[in-house]
Structures are given as C-alpha cells and as structure tokens.
C-alpha cells in the first residue's frame, strides 16, 4: 500500500514514524494517569476531626430542646451533668424514639460520635432505649446566658461530629439539608467559641424547630443574633432568624 508517511486509516499498516509517535503518546498517557491520580488523590483533604467512638451506653433523661438530647445523671465529678445530642440512624432523627421516653430515666445504647466538646449518641432502634432504674434527678429548664451575635456555619449535627465527613462546606450542603429535613439535629458551628464551646444546638426564637428558611443558609458563612441557653454543659442557640445575614 502506498500510504504516505504519517497517514493513518485504521486498517492500513501504520507507518513506522507514526507508530513510534503513537507508542510515545500511549506511554505518556499511561504515565500521566498515574501522576495525575497521585496529585489529585493526595490533594483530597481530611475535612474534620470528628470520629465514631464505637459502641457506648449512657443513662440519663431525654428532652426535646427542640432536638432530642440526653442529660446524663450528675456525678460527683460532674455535678452539673453532661448533655449528649441524640441522633437516629442514617439521615433520620431520633425524635420519634425519644418522644416515647421523654422525661424518664433511660439507658441508651448506640454508637458514639465525638468532635471537640460535641458528644453524640446514635440510636437507630426503639429497643436501644431501655428504662433504667434510677431516681429521677431534678433537671431545670435551660437557663438564659445572654444575647449574642454569632458568626459561623449552620451544619447538620451528625456529620459535623464525623457521621459523614466532610461535615462542613458547600460540597456537602445538599447532604446537610437532607439530614436536617430528616430531623437530625441542626447545629451552629461558631467561628469563635461562645462560653468555651464552638458549636451550639440550633432552635427557633421560641425554642421550637428552626424554620425552613435555614435550608438556604446551611453550609455558608452567616451571622445570626439570638439568645444562648444552657442545659447542663450544652449550649442551645434560640436564633432570631430575621437577623440572619450573609457574612
């Protein structure tokens, strides 16, 4: 065949000069695959230091504030009592489970999630909530600490402590919304700590569930004014949504 140099038909013989070129291209491409995967793979960041801490049990009283929380029985070391957030399995909140045992002393069994001072127990079945034989302690209603203007990010309380990393950031916005729609606790990750805490459980001005307007502001830097309440060692932000501003 009188194929001129460097002309490729797909069925004719490949001219030697062209075939040398093509071998170089193929080797180059395969090497680039390796180098690019290394570059982009190593560039993936570990976003967040939240972790699962394995199976745990905790005994206390369940409250909806407005999301389920477990106030642990006070101990000598911790007379004020520690407060844990309670989440359900997947992206479905534990509200239903908690409603039935509200105000009684119970033992919860589930998986622990922890990031900084955020302490959470994941309870995905009713059978994991068992009545416990202990005297009912006198937990008061949450107390007002003060009115604050806080800058930070609205996140879902399950991914932020490590349920599903990254847990913060825009790439994760739809996922965070999905958790909050499913009634997993919404939290506010503050840019600078309030009373030593860098996250607060989120509620409406009147302490009820936050309004749907929140979905447009999750995962973005915002500032909101509102009252900060304390229940044990947990801070709750009764945010006034009309004051919300983009940062």
């Amino acid at each position: 065949m009188s194929s001129p140099p460097e002309f490729f038909t797909g069925y004719g013989e490949v001219p030697p000069a062209l075939s040398r070129f093509l071998v170089k291209v193929i080797v180059g491409l395969l090497a680039s695959s390796f180098v690019l995967a290394l570059m982009l793979g190593l560039g993936v960041q570990d976003r967040g230091d939240g972790r699962y801490s394995g199976e745990i049990r905790a005994t206390g009283v369940l409250f909806n504030l407005p999301y389920p929380v477990l106030r642990l029985l006070p101990t000598a070391a911790d007379p004020q009592g520690h407060t844990m957030l309670v989440a359900g399995g997947g992206k479905i909140g534990a509200g239903d489970i908690a409603d039935k045992a509200k105000g009684r002393v119970v033992e919860l069994r589930g998986f622990g999630l922890k990031r900084g001072t955020l302490d959470m127990i994941v309870v995905d079945e009713e059978s994991q909530v068992q009545p416990a034989a202990a005297p009912l302690p006198l937990f008061g209603a949450p107390v007002l600490i003060g009115r604050y203007l806080i800058a930070g990010e609205i996140c879902d309380g399950k991914c932020y402590p490590g349920g599903m990393r990254p847990g913060t950031g825009l790439a994760h916005k739809a996922c965070a919304n999905l958790c909050i729609i499913g009634r997993q606790p919404a939290i506010f990750a503050a840019q600078s700590p309030i009373e030593g805490q860098s996250f607060l459980l989120l509620a409406n001005k009147d302490g009820a569930l936050p309004p749907p307007v929140l979905y447009d502001h999750t995962a973005l830097p915002v500032e909101i004014e509102g009252e900060v309440m304390r229940a044990g060692d947990l801070l709750i932000f009764h945010a006034d949504w009309s004051t919300l501003r983009k940062q």
Partner: peptide, 15 residues
C-alpha cells in the same frame, strides 16, 4: 481502559 484502571486504582488504593 488501562488509563482509567491505573487512575482509579492509584487514587483509591495506593494514595
């Protein structure tokens, strides 16, 4: 296919 294979394996196994 080799290109895709090298890329994915490097990314999810080697890295």
């Amino acid at each position: 296919i080799a290109w895709v294979g090298i890329y994915i394996l490097t990314f999810v196994r080697l890295v």
